[in-house]
Amino acid sequence: MFHDLTDVLVPLFITTRRFGGDAQPWWLDKFRPLLRGLSRHDVVDMDRGGRGVLGYPHVVVGLEFHKEMSVDAARTAGEYSMADFALLARRSYGLTRDTAIRLHGRSDGDRSSGRPRLLLISRRSTRAFANVGAIALGYEVVVGEPARHAELPSFARVVNSCDVLVGVHGAGLANLVFLPAGAVVVQVVPLGGLDAMAAEDFGAPARDAGLRYVHYRIAVAESTLARRYPRDHRVLRDPAAVRREGWMALRAAYLVGQNVTLDVRRFGDALRRAMELLR
């Protein structure tokens, strides 16, 4: 999902927006609702269309890229932003909540229960939460795992129904584009000195999309790596040295096989911060 957005869909939005809907995008059926919002024309599959020749008065080859999963509004002269892309994503999938709950004062996101809804992104293979049931602290908690290829519309509706999105650094956080404005993204950053990458991949896009952001760096004791390696092992002691060996070394050490057991008391501060941002 992250690469779908950062490599294709957001750059496609940047590239086609100037034409006011006069463009010819292509992509998987998974994103057909969003692609319809980018263009008034039908999608043309060059391999299956059965057309020998296609003629256009103007063709743009390649897509314009600003930054990871976001739009640099300064480069569009303020005409559109990542918040506009998020609005397009919500409209494309028929999502009805444009505003997150406010704990004081009314909004179209308010609920009679007064409890914010929190979606915990569950991962099965790696960077998974080992104690999902321990997370509550006044929230109505929903646990979900986005399907890789199918059922995006139904998962988008779940995301849009929530006020807080919590997940370990990974592709599932890209679903933040379906959150209502003013919602909060809580990114749990695993060991490995990944803070800068995590902030660039999801922190900046969240803020650009009109969301609030909480950055939670886990302690060593919260990582399953602390039980795999002795305390003085370089993976725990010197992540910078591992990162200097390159991406594959970093991936092997920190992104594959590291799960998270949250310190409920410590993580409670992050959840309270998210609650404050909803006021």
Rank of each mutant, 00 (worst) to 15 (best):
residue 19 F to K: 06
residue 19 F to D: 09
residue 19 F to H: 05
residue 19 F to R: 12
residue 21 G to L: 00
residue 21 G to S: 08
residue 22 D to R: 09
residue 22 D to E: 09
residue 22 D to L: 11
residue 22 D to Q: 02
residue 23 A to W: 01
residue 23 A to M: 05
residue 23 A to L: 02
residue 24 Q to I: 00
residue 24 Q to S: 03
residue 25 P to Y: 00
residue 25 P to H: 01
residue 26 W to F: 15
residue 26 W to L: 11
residue 26 W to N: 01
residue 26 W to D: 02
residue 26 W to M: 01
residue 27 W to A: 12
residue 27 W to T: 06
residue 27 W to E: 05
residue 28 L to D: 10
residue 28 L to K: 06
residue 28 L to A: 02
residue 28 L to T: 11
residue 28 L to C: 06
residue 28 L to W: 14
residue 28 L to S: 15
residue 29 D to H: 04
residue 29 D to V: 11
residue 29 D to M: 02
residue 29 D to P: 13
residue 30 K to Q: 09
residue 30 K to I: 12
residue 30 K to L: 14
residue 30 K to H: 01
residue 31 F to K: 05
residue 31 F to Q: 04
residue 31 F to T: 11
residue 31 F to H: 06
residue 31 F to Y: 15
residue 32 R to C: 03
residue 32 R to Q: 11
residue 33 P to L: 01
residue 33 P to K: 02
residue 34 L to S: 10
residue 34 L to R: 01
residue 35 L to T: 13
residue 35 L to D: 06
residue 35 L to C: 12
residue 35 L to Q: 00
residue 35 L to K: 03
residue 35 L to M: 14
residue 36 R to Q: 00
residue 36 R to E: 04
residue 36 R to S: 01
residue 37 G to Y: 02
residue 39 S to L: 05
residue 40 R to D: 07
residue 40 R to P: 13
residue 40 R to H: 08
residue 40 R to V: 03
residue 41 H to M: 02
residue 41 H to P: 11
residue 41 H to G: 00
residue 42 D to T: 09
residue 42 D to G: 12
residue 43 V to D: 05
residue 43 V to Q: 05
residue 44 V to I: 15
residue 44 V to P: 07
residue 45 D to I: 03
residue 45 D to W: 11
residue 45 D to Q: 10
residue 46 M to L: 15
residue 47 D to K: 15
residue 47 D to C: 01
residue 47 D to E: 14
residue 48 R to N: 13
residue 49 G to R: 10
residue 49 G to Y: 05
residue 49 G to T: 14
residue 50 G to C: 02
residue 50 G to K: 03
residue 50 G to D: 10
residue 50 G to V: 03
residue 51 R to K: 14
residue 51 R to C: 01
residue 52 G to Y: 13
residue 52 G to K: 13
residue 53 V to L: 15
residue 53 V to Q: 07
residue 53 V to M: 08
residue 53 V to K: 00
residue 55 G to L: 09
residue 55 G to A: 13
residue 56 Y to N: 03
residue 57 P to I: 04
residue 57 P to S: 09
residue 57 P to G: 08
residue 58 H to S: 04
residue 58 H to D: 10
residue 58 H to T: 00
residue 58 H to L: 04
residue 59 V to W: 00
residue 60 V to R: 13
residue 60 V to Q: 08
residue 60 V to H: 00
residue 60 V to C: 02
residue 60 V to D: 08
residue 60 V to F: 02
residue 62 G to S: 08
residue 62 G to R: 09
residue 62 G to I: 12
residue 62 G to F: 08
residue 63 L to C: 04
residue 63 L to E: 12
residue 64 E to N: 00
residue 64 E to S: 13
residue 64 E to L: 13
residue 65 F to V: 10
residue 65 F to S: 10
residue 65 F to Y: 15
residue 65 F to P: 12
residue 66 H to V: 04
residue 66 H to W: 10
residue 66 H to F: 07
residue 66 H to S: 06
